[in-house]
Amino acid sequence: MKKVPVQFTLNGEDKAEFVESGATLLKALREKIGDTSVKAGCQQGTCGSCAVIVDGELRLSCLTLAERCDGAAIETTGGLAHGEVLHPLQRAFNEGFATQCGFCTPGMIMAAKALLDGNPQPSREDVVEAISGNICRCTGYEPIIQAILAAARANSLSAA
């Protein structure tokens, strides 16, 4: 199998790997780089568990080829905390009991981050729209929506 070199930043750190041509970003992150915060829930583009942010845009790593991310800046939930300091979304999901099994959580947090990065004070409707491509089977979504709204409020307080 042909291997191709790929370089990108992952959560601000330079990464350079040889990946199989045609391999997905999901596989590259999980199997080559070892960032297993990115989850394979369907590999069809229908669950959002593998969502990452590429150059500021939310994407499904299962449908993105790794070699098309050469030079990109990639963000994952695995790199969101600074040491023990959690990102406001992580704090809100934790304190708001917005995780149960936790499998959808990293993708959900990425979807929420992509929203808040562009729209720091979203309405409930904005939040619903932003997570609509992410499946959660445990929570019934309401705690997740509340956690994202709480994180947005916390952001606005800290910005004030």
């Binding site: 960032d35 297993t36 915060s37 990115v38 994952t76 939930t77 695995g78 969101l80 905390a81 959690l86 979304l89 992580q90 704090r91 999901f93 934790n94 009991f97 995780t99 936790g102 959580t105 990293p106 947090i109």
Partner: peptide, 9 residues
């Protein structure tokens, strides 16, 4: 376990 969930660990 929630801390592990929200940090993807």
């Amino acid at each position: 376990d929630a801390l592990g969930h929200v940090t993807g660990t």
